[in-house]
Nucleic acid binder design. Structure first.
Lengths: 339, 339
DNA sequence: GGTAAAATCGAAAACGTTTTCGATGAAAAA
DNA sequence: TTTTTCATCGAAAACGTTTTCGATTTTACC
């Protein structure tokens, strides 16, 4: 009960391995007769090429690697969805690894993927990532490489992004236009570029509308969790009871903020308005429904894969490839929490 | 700028490829001197074995395949988390595919994984799955194979499960003990074994407590969505306004039920008590907080991988392997919706 | 019939590794 | 010195495919 090989087909048909291989790949220098015979026998023996051998010979595995901080996360799982769907369409499979927001793991996983000789790598950096030697290694080995969402500006690879500054600006502007005068910000960790950019967007919006920036109104998440949202909400209302609006790094944390406000009976949006980021599914099912910034996660995955595919193709054709940076559009979703 | 190979190391050191290979794998018939020389040079040239060649030679890829109905799903993404974490621990990578609840896709993806020659396959069946020829194919090719959660009873592979009947029984019993007299059930689609089992558990609990079963109180989801939850809730209260408890196939749908009750100001738990299934994260952040059945999803992933690994190992050692069925424990989480 | 062109085929190398088994030389025992 | 043992090494096959390039056969043409 062994696997069928070209050799077996060749021997039973009394022809050479070469011809069998060519017949299966529809080469023009095989007569219709032999071609048919090979096809028939291959089919009846359920021949499938040994992909290990194909990989070795062609030096590609039709497999790409994906490293993300967390799988159990609405945004990232949506991106995964986009990537594996698009990859499958184009005949690629996806190996997924999770850095758990740890730089150490991320490094190890990049090494793993390089050793596996995947055809390309897509990554969203962990919050801890402030080194990029491992990313440079990818470039240096000339492995097609795309970053998305949480990226390193210093690495000249293709990127798929949203304009975090602009999106954050719009979110804070939304609060201002709804009448907020004193707006706090619960920001993400210090390293990630998108946390930085959203913070900048927050400041710019305040500036634009002549609201003084007060660094005491900025709270910095470490782990970006529901619990941190509750904690900072509590801290915030005790320190600055007159805050009337808060812009939160992401919906998960914002939901924590709402949970605390619910507990202590602070009225949202009457007393404080809240806006989140990323449009997690849960934001539309909680009370009050959370206003947020919609981020095209699925599309982000699709775009990231297609960029990678372009680079893989040009590498195969030994063409040069210019890294591209694609910015996708966000939009404000107004719900009850800022009504 | 080519990849380093054994051949290169051998030539620069003036020894044979064989010896280089043995040195790197710490064979005993290589002198300490040569061993060290090889190790040093390999390190300075950043040698990593070509995994394509290793795969071909050893007939294994240290890669497993995972097929699940949906990635963007709290339960499944938690299982993924468990599987890839445990797999990485043991030196395996995981290719993830998504059947989108489609039998057709599922079949195709099994074929994809078989062609890729993964070392093993873990699967949770799609709702549409009522055929199992593709699963039999896996067994017939003697690929290590584990099913979890949504399984086919007819396929004698290893399985990781919860006792859906028992868990559902306990959930409904919980409603009864809280005083519910007329309990509806929003069930899952007709095919999946776990939807069937939860339905049976529901009936058994009613029977045990002498509550007559009424098939009109059973609503059958097609897509298991938030929207279906809202829809069936509406249908239910209009047809049977005296229902005072409802057991829902999964939290996502239950959250839809709560959303409708919220809209039309039906008091939960005063008028109707609601219990879900699976303990999705969002269940603890909505109002009222949803009671549910906790299902050890991460642990399920870990267990599934370890079962697969056992089978992979015994196959390598040409030992026989008896498929195992492991049942993990669930527990009722009491929250506001059944208080 | 002879030659040129076209159609069809296959030998062999290559991809890079692992492993078996025999060869060689040196050290130990006789 | 001869024989035996042990340590160290390498030739070569194997894994299964793809592809180049030359060889052979068939067909077409004069």
């Amino acid at each position: 009960m062994k696997e069928t090989t070209l050799k077996q087909i060749a021997e039973t048909l009394g022809i050479s391995i070469t011809t069998v291989s060519k017949a299966l790949k529809n080469y023009s220098d095989v007569s219709p007769k032999t071609k048919q015979a090979v096809l028939d026998l291959a089919h009846s023996l359920q021949y499938t090429p040994n992909s290990f051998a194909v990989n070795l010979r062609t030096k590609e595995s039709k497999t790409i690697g994906l490293i993300i901080p967390e799988v159990v996360h609405h945004f990232f799982s949506s991106v995964i969805n986009g990537i594996i769907a698009e990859a499958e369409q184009h005949g690629y499979l996806v190996i997924i690894l999770q850095s758990n927001e740890s730089l150490e793991l991320e490094k190890k996983q990049v090494a793993l993927l390089l050793n596996k000789r995947v055809d390309g790598i897509i990554i969203s950096l962990s919050n801890e990532s402030n080194h990029d030697a491992h990313l440079k290694e990818i470039l240096q080995r000339e492995i097609p490489f795309v970053q998305f969402d949480k990226i390193s500006k210093l690495i000249p690879s293709s990127k798929v992004l949203i304009n975090d500054q602009k999106a954050a600006f719009e979110a804070v502007e939304h609060l201002i236009l709804k009448g907020c005068k004193k707006i706090a910000h619960i920001r993400g960790p210090v390293n990630p570029q998108n946390a930085i950019d959203r913070f900048i967007g927050y400041k710019k919006a305040l500036e634009q509308y002549n609201i003084p920036f007060d660094s005491r109104l900025v709270y910095t998440c470490k782990n970006v969790t529901f619990e941190e949202g509750k904690m900072f909400a509590k801290e915030m209302v005790s320190q600055h009871p007159d805050v009337d609006g808060v812009f939160v790094i992401t919906d998960l944390v914002a939901v924590g903020v709402l949970a605390y406000f619910n507990e202590v009976q602070i009225q949202v949006p009457q007393q404080i308005k809240v806006i989140g980021f990323s449009n997690w599914f849960m934001s539309q099912v909680i009370t009050p429904k959370l206003s947020t910034v919609d981020q095209p996660s699925y599309e982000m995955g699709v775009t990231a894969f297609n960029l990678l595919l372009q680079e893989i193709q040009s590498k195969k054709d030994s063409q040069s490839f210019e890294p591209q940076v694609i910015e996708l559009n966000t939009k404000i979703i107004e719900r009850e929490s800022t009504l």
